[in-house]
Structure formats: C-alpha cells, structure tokens
C-alpha cells in the first residue's frame, strides 16, 4: 500500500471531491506518464494517454472498491489505452519490423568512437543512448514490452505486474524472459557496447 489514507482518498473521489482527484493525480501521474512514455515511445502520446487514464479513472472510480490495488488498476488502464493507441497507429501506418536498425548502428558506433563528443557533450550522448534504448523497446511486441516496462523499468513486483496485466506470475516470468532477450538482441544489432549489459 502506498498511502495509509488511500481508502479515505478513494471514498472522497467516489463522492466527487475535486481535491481528492487532484491528490490522486499528484500521487500517481508520474508513474502513469512514465509507463505510457515507455509504451508509446513519445512524450506527446504519453501525455494524451495520461490524460485519458485519469479521466477514465475518475469516471469509473465509483465502481472501484479495492484501494490496495488502486495503482495496479491505474497501470492496467494505462497499458490498455497504450495498446489501443498503438493498434490505431498501426492501422494508419504499416509497422516496419526492421527499419533503421542499420542507421542506428552507425549513429551509436560514431558516438562510441568519438571520445570528444562524449566528453564535450555528455548530455547529448545520454540523450542519444536513451533514444536508442527507447527505439529498441518500441520494437518489442506489446505483451513482452508491457512486462518489461512494469517490472524492470517501473519496478513493480511480480505480483503487482501480474495484477496489472491480468495474468499469472508464471506468465510474467516467461514474458520477461522473452522481453529481456529481445531487448538485448535489438540493442546488440544497433551496436550497443558490452558495458551496457553488465549488471550494476
């Protein structure tokens, strides 16, 4: 449980209190936004999803009873909306599995070889790495990406991730296997150096 007053907050939300909604938003919006960002791959879409998640949550909170699983419920809404959005996007434009892997390899290899770039503009370098990581993540199938985001990036436990996704913990484990392996394979293809794969 994140907050001992969560039950009270939930009751106030059900009664339509704007303050309670505001508190709920403040408490969870970063998690929602971050998950949406990892799932969608861009900030604008993540903000749209966050907006929709809270609007949907405010609408359906009257039906929601278990305060203990409030944040997994929000994760579930987030994941579903992200997947819906992705489906709509895929309908509009054909999804290309192998686009730009080679061009990203060049970018990252150039960056690796240019020590000056690394020292002169560490932030740009970091941004570049983050962009490559996000691109690789976006290419993983949604069901594997979802557990990777929830477990490895958002830090949920197996039980919480299973609750959010609506499957067993065993399934979370096997999907994580697949997600982690795919992430590594894609990043190696993009030229990511070995140092990134070492445990920290």
């Amino acid at each position: 449980m994140d907050n001992p007053n969560l039950e009270d907050l939930l009751i106030a939300c059900r009664q339509g209190s704007d303050d309670a909604f505001r508190k709920l938003f403040e408490q969870y919006h970063m998690r929602v936004m971050s998950t949406a960002y990892r799932m969608c791959g861009n900030i604008q879409e993540a903000e749209d999803v966050t907006q929709d998640v809270f609007l949907k949550a405010f609408k359906e909170i009257k039906k929601f009873r278990e305060a203990a699983s409030l944040f997994t419920w929000l994760y579930r809404i987030t994941i579903n909306l992200c997947i819906d959005k992705e489906r709509k996007r895929q309908r509009r434009q054909k999804y290309h599995e192998n686009v730009d892997v080679d061009s990203e390899r060049i970018t990252i290899e150039e960056a690796n070889s240019n020590e000056n770039t690394r020292t002169l503009d560490q932030q740009m370098w970091q941004d570049e790495i983050q962009s490559i990581l996000q691109k690789a993540l976006s290419r993983i199938k949604p069901k594997f990406r979802t557990v990777l985001v929830l477990k490895d990036i958002e830090g949920l436990s197996y039980e919480e991730a299973a609750q959010a996704v609506g499957c067993s913990q065993g399934t979370i484990s096997s999907r994580l296997n697949r997600g982690r392996k795919e992430l590594k394979t894609l990043l190696v293809k993009m030229g990511m150096g070995e140092e990134y794969f070492q445990e920290r």
Binding site: L133, L183, F197
Partner: peptide, 14 residues
Amino acid sequence: EIRSGKAVATCFEN
C-alpha cells in the same frame, strides 16, 4: 542473455 537484458533495462531514464 536474460541477465544482460535485465541489466540494460536499468539504463532507462525518464
């Protein structure tokens, strides 16, 4: 392989 994937997943920054 899985360990490497897990390690690189920690590099994500918001």
